[in-house]
């Protein structure tokens, strides 16, 4: 029981501490950058940043370039997350199947994707696969991201599934449940609890890796940032703002996962 409560205590503490650490780190970096910029004679113009986040035209508040970029990043990450989890779970189940062909297919996909840099995968899908099947920029980007992250997610899923004790399977089978029902009602819900923390990490990487889709001219947060730097020369201000926005996304993800994890854990108390 003590171990249990101890675990709970540290878990309650964790996200705030990691956010705190991040803010501390950012503070130090900003201070260093500020010092560096000062030595460069950099002229800080933070007041101009608000214009590229929201713009006011004819009395109407409109999303500025950075906010539009954030929207695009959200869309790509959201679709990518959903698809990568499906691919991950599918591949994990394929690898656990008794079928040798299924296992081989899953292995080939894993080894192929994990040994190709994401940037090259994006180019390959956009320039080679895309024209073949008539995929647009957005579809190509989501596909590349989710294929890449799905490979890692599948290992996380597989680990979680394998970690469920044999006795759970046997109990489920002995009650007459089919393999599918055993997965659905007995094994997956238990595995999910163990998978959630590493899966959150994977989701955070997906959000950050989505910056690479700017290379195929998708106007995501990074691309808009680049464009704004070119336009306004506010290099430091713009990139700090962009970094802050990514942070906002990933921290929200972590907090959501943490809440979900706690809910599942309480359920299991």
């Amino acid at each position: 029981m003590n171990i249990f409560f101890g675990e709970h205590g540290s878990r309650a503490f964790e996200p705030w501490w990691s956010i705190g650490r991040y803010i501390l780190l950012m503070g130090v970096l900003i201070w260093l950058a500020g010092r560096g910029a000062e030595n460069l004679g950099y002229n800080w113009q933070w007041y101009r940043v608000s214009d590229i986040i929201v713009s006011i035209k004819n009395g109407h508040v409109q999303a500025g370039p950075l906010l539009q970029g954030l929207g695009m990043t959200l869309k790509i990450s959201g679709a990518g997350l959903l698809l990568s989890f499906c691919i991950g779970l599918g591949t994990a189940l394929l690898r656990l199947l008794p079928s040798a062909v299924g296992r081989l297919l899953a292995r080939i996909y894993l080894e192929l994707v994990r040994n190709i840099p994401l940037l090259i995968l994006i180019f390959f899908i956009y320039f080679v696969i895309g024209p073949l099947f008539g995929l647009g920029r957005f579809t190509s980007a989501v596909l590349a991201l989710s294929l890449f992250e799905g490979a890692y997610a599948s290992e996380i899923f597989r680990g979680g599934l394998v970690s469920i004790h044999r006795g759970q399977w046997e109990a489920s089978y002995s009650l007459g449940l089919s393999t599918w029902d055993s997965y659905r009602y007995v094994v997956l819900p238990q595995a999910l609890r163990r998978i959630l923390p590493p899966l959150t990490g994977q989701a955070v990487s997906l959000v950050k890796d989505s910056a690479l889709v700017s290379t195929i001219a998708i106007y995501d947060l990074t691309m808009q940032g680049q464009a704004m730097v070119a336009e306004t020369f506010l290099a430091f201000e713009v990139w700090f703002t962009v970094a802050g926005m990514y942070l906002l996304l990933t921290v929200s993800l972590s907090i959501a996962a943490w809440i979900l994890e706690r809910k599942l854990a309480l359920n299991n108390a």
Partner: peptide
């Protein structure tokens, strides 16, 4: 019906 040494109830 089967009853196991280690119970094997579904913990969730």
């Amino acid at each position: 019906g089967m009853v196991f040494q280690s119970f094997n109830l579904f913990p969730h």
